[in-house]
Design a protein around this nucleic acid. Sequence first.
DNA 1: ACATAATCGAGACGGTACGTCCCGTCTTGTG
DNA 2: CACAAGACGGGACGTACCGTCTCGATTATGT
Lengths: 213, 213, 213, 213
Amino acid sequence: MTTTGATLPGAAGAAPIPHRSPGRPRDARCDQAIIQATLDMLAEGGIAGLSMEAVASRAGVGKATIYRRWSSKETLVVDALATLSGSDEVDAPDTGVLRDDLIAWVDSARRKSWNTQWGRILPRMLAEKDTHPEAMSLYWQRVIRPRRERVEEMLRRGMESGELREDLDVDFVADILLGPVTYRQLVRHARAVSPEQVVQVVDLVLEGIRRRP
Amino acid sequence: MTTTGATLPGAAGAAPIPHRSPGRPRDARCDQAIIQATLDMLAEGGIAGLSMEAVASRAGVGKATIYRRWSSKETLVVDALATLSGSDEVDAPDTGVLRDDLIAWVDSARRKSWNTQWGRILPRMLAEKDTHPEAMSLYWQRVIRPRRERVEEMLRRGMESGELREDLDVDFVADILLGPVTYRQLVRHARAVSPEQVVQVVDLVLEGIRRRP
Amino acid sequence: MTTTGATLPGAAGAAPIPHRSPGRPRDARCDQAIIQATLDMLAEGGIAGLSMEAVASRAGVGKATIYRRWSSKETLVVDALATLSGSDEVDAPDTGVLRDDLIAWVDSARRKSWNTQWGRILPRMLAEKDTHPEAMSLYWQRVIRPRRERVEEMLRRGMESGELREDLDVDFVADILLGPVTYRQLVRHARAVSPEQVVQVVDLVLEGIRRRP
Amino acid sequence: MTTTGATLPGAAGAAPIPHRSPGRPRDARCDQAIIQATLDMLAEGGIAGLSMEAVASRAGVGKATIYRRWSSKETLVVDALATLSGSDEVDAPDTGVLRDDLIAWVDSARRKSWNTQWGRILPRMLAEKDTHPEAMSLYWQRVIRPRRERVEEMLRRGMESGELREDLDVDFVADILLGPVTYRQLVRHARAVSPEQVVQVVDLVLEGIRRRP
DNA sequence: ACATAATCGAGACGGTACGTCCCGTCTTGTG
DNA sequence: CACAAGACGGGACGTACCGTCTCGATTATGT
């Protein structure tokens, strides 16, 4: 998962010729400690408030050990964010009943947005999307898009089953569902969306996209 | 819209004694030169490639003259960008036809959010909201709230005239209208909402909040 | 006494044509306050730790008021030190008995060197004689030399009366008398010369410079 | 003779474990380049015209590299000057004839004090003795005290052999011998003591402290 | 067993920019 | 005019990180 292209142990599968490189191998615990320290500091002060010196110190690692793995602050941040996608599975069930599934999905987003790590890192990323566009782009690919694919899948099935209109822009519908939740979290920090309001939004959208009888 | 505590003109009403502060007054040409240099450098190298030292030098100004007005690089950038938005006027007409007015209002937000300067200033404010809550609060009061008051007024009139349901949370409805536009601007910078999609959103929401027959 | 050559009121005596310059006359209290503040700060931190800004502030005066009288920090310091000469008269009597007079004079220097203002300003001046040679030179002329002229006068009279050898370098003899007192004060701050040691030194020197029988 | 708390070579005696400090060691060439640049600039513009920024630039060194070794401009200058004095050896012989030895010793002090570097470092130390007492204390221990021990030894031997009075305060006698030389150096920079005057002083003092027949 | 070689923590290195403090000058309104 | 207040261009201060570079010590392999 490193951007520098250095092969991590175990990543290559059953290579025909192992030919392990000589010398002391890299210590996997370093990778872990560095990533963790980076995520901690991102949540605390964003990319701007993140210094390689502090990451090294917090991870109990020399600066060179970081630069041996990542060529710059940006690539480190990008990789650190990438690790977030795996651990944060979309915990929305798949009941087959569209309304319930949508509600569950939006509510999952609502809960996630209040989770500390998610809730703090997103605004930081947004603020710095001009300064560090690659980081934001990777954050989208690795963290956000996987979640969205779930709801787009739901909507597409609804279209196929005839429950929804056939001319939907599923991408945009997902934005309408997610918009209010995200807007409140970001812009109006103190006024979170309630579970009841999640239902309101889903019903409102559903009414607009359901196939007309 | 300075973020520093400068007294705002016209805020005091009929003050008995104006009581100008003593000493040499600030030179307005400096403000102008600094803002201009900042904008120039922003255009050339982005926020990352902007140094106070270079701004001072390009503006033909001492660094202290900048710090006398803005306490940090962030506040300077925010103010510089703010000057670009020019007239903060909500350029939405008031026709009396609710659907048309809502469409006009959301579309005005869409156009504004698509402006480079607007598109950059909001995320920056969001990033600072933990570190400098007062800056975000000021931004909300001066920029965002006046716009929202317009739409809340529309919705309230719709409730009074019987066109809309009477149990609406106008604040939340405004968020649903604004959510998709802002969400796309912030999170999906490359995919702006189209005028057609504005109409879709308004119709969708309107259908959900209209008084049932 | 100003180095800028501006005529102070009352300094010119009975000028044929008074022809007072128009406008508001300078406030003599300002001169005083500035000089006093300068001396205070010199005693506290030397020339290095003296800022015009602080002098102005402590004197309750605008910076321009200082620069109207003195063209630079150096000229101000020089003039401030010059005022010291007047107030610190040599309080040694003139009994006619050489030994007593010398003891009284050296002891006066011993007491002076422990006085706060004298004792603190001299080492400061010495330390900065390379940085500000003019200041040191003026300090010598105005403050130190007048004291020394007293002892040189005594020694010359002793030579004339036949009590002392006729080939004395009075200047150097004064240095021998003053050397130990000053050396202890400056270099060995904690070990001041005692009144008894003053007598020892004078007797020692006197024995060496008395006319051989 | 660094003023910073660097461990002195040879101070530890027979340490069981030398325990080199970890990390990249300081580059000795930097020390050299910085000192040299400092001395060059001192020669050109004096202490006043010496800026750390210029020293760094001329030495081809980062500012931090200087501040890692010296905590301020003052300490750097002091150390730079100290390196000039080269051998701190007291170049006075030990002939066994008291008068000759004293003359040689005082004359050695005279020659030293007349050196530019020596002449500048002492007054500077004096100025700092209030602010940085430990620096002055170190200077005393390393530079001044070793010299004085030589003369005190001479005087004590003179007392033991019966050549001198037995009630002498050798410390004070040393001050009387050194006083005139130092006084002229510090206060009357332009008028150095001549070799002949050294003889005068020694004879004068010797006459006062010799055992009466 | 032992040299080889890449790793590790630590921290010095040349730089760049930071935000602060003064310098000596200039510009206000009020005596 | 002088005065207090304080803004102005400029320059140096001492600090914080950047990304690179040595150090001595550690840790596997390939002889």
